[in-house]
Computed example of a mutant assay.
Amino acid sequence: MSKVSKTYQKRTEDEMRLKEAWDGKGMIDSASLPEPVRRHLRLCGYEGRRLPVAGSVIWKESSIRFGPDKPWTSLVTKQFNSCVTPFRAAYMKTRMFGILPFEGLDLCIGGTGSMLGKLAGVINVLDEKGVEFDTSGLVTLLAEATMIPGMLLMPYISWGKAEGSTVNASMTLKGITVGGRFIFGEDGLFRIFESDDRYYANPKGGNEIRPWKVECERYDEADGIKFQSHVTASWQLPEGRYEYWRGTIERVESGSGGVLFS
């Protein structure tokens, strides 16, 4: 097992232990959620059931583009999210230029973000930290809150009033506040998350804030619960839309526990 893979496994196991010891204090009452959010949860099948507070997102397939003019590259992706710390870890593996093995690890732990990338398991090509990665990590956690819906009840998320099918929300940790818009479709299910707070790594150099969007194009169902099954992520650049990520989720393994939704 490579160093990057070991780091992913250790961080995830550490978070799972924290989740098992967590007593659930501080969560808001689900009745205080904006109605479009509550309707989404009911439609997903959570009424009278527990909202997961941690889980593994099992990606059936995923692809990335490393620039607006670059081809799609297939990835093997592993992901674990938890609302306890909160925590997000995404491990990605592919071959650069179709030859060199590449591993990446995108982490956000309690509001501290980082990105690590290695070629052939030993050559560092990415080792990034700082406020831009802290901020972007929080935006991503907020965008994915409906994947592990116990996060919707955490006190570090603040909800605005619903405006039709759109609900504004913000997340605050370690003195950083990020915001975004949850947009629900005509069917009542969450469909789009938009934020103006995430940093884009310009291939020409530097990090700059650009409009960012996650779109959920399809839902599937397992054990009576609907889950997001096809997801894309894109940037809105001056020259146009740049979709850089797309993937299909096979299932979300959340295990036992959680908070009752009623």
Rank of each mutant, 00 (worst) to 15 (best):
49 R>W: 06
81 N>K: 09
42 R>G: 06
56 S>T: 01
22 W>K: 12
126 L>D: 07
21 A>P: 01
127 D>S: 14
151 M>E: 05
220 D>C: 07
27 M>P: 02
211 P>F: 00
94 T>A: 03
9 Q>Y: 10
72 W>A: 11
185 G>E: 07
130 G>F: 13
141 L>I: 09
206 G>L: 15
113 G>L: 12
174 K>V: 01
130 G>A: 11
102 F>V: 13
75 L>R: 03
240 G>R: 06
219 Y>L: 00
224 G>R: 08
233 A>D: 00
134 D>A: 08
118 K>S: 02
176 I>E: 07
145 A>E: 03
151 M>V: 11
220 D>E: 09
260 L>Y: 11
236 Q>S: 12
249 I>N: 02
120 A>S: 12
63 S>I: 01
234 S>T: 01
207 N>Y: 15
197 D>G: 03
10 K>H: 14
63 S>D: 11
44 C>N: 08
90 A>L: 15
254 S>N: 10
155 P>E: 13
213 K>V: 06
42 R>D: 09
204 K>D: 15
68 P>L: 04
30 S>Y: 08
121 G>M: 05
159 W>I: 10
13 E>S: 14
39 R>M: 05
247 G>E: 11
150 G>S: 10
120 A>C: 11
254 S>P: 07
147 M>D: 04
137 G>C: 11
250 E>R: 14
11 R>N: 15
44 C>I: 04
65 R>F: 00
196 D>H: 13
19 K>P: 02
251 R>G: 05
216 C>P: 00
90 A>Q: 10
115 M>N: 07
243 E>H: 00
66 F>W: 12
147 M>C: 08
233 A>Y: 03
4 V>Y: 06
168 N>C: 12
182 F>W: 07
41 L>P: 04
7 T>C: 06
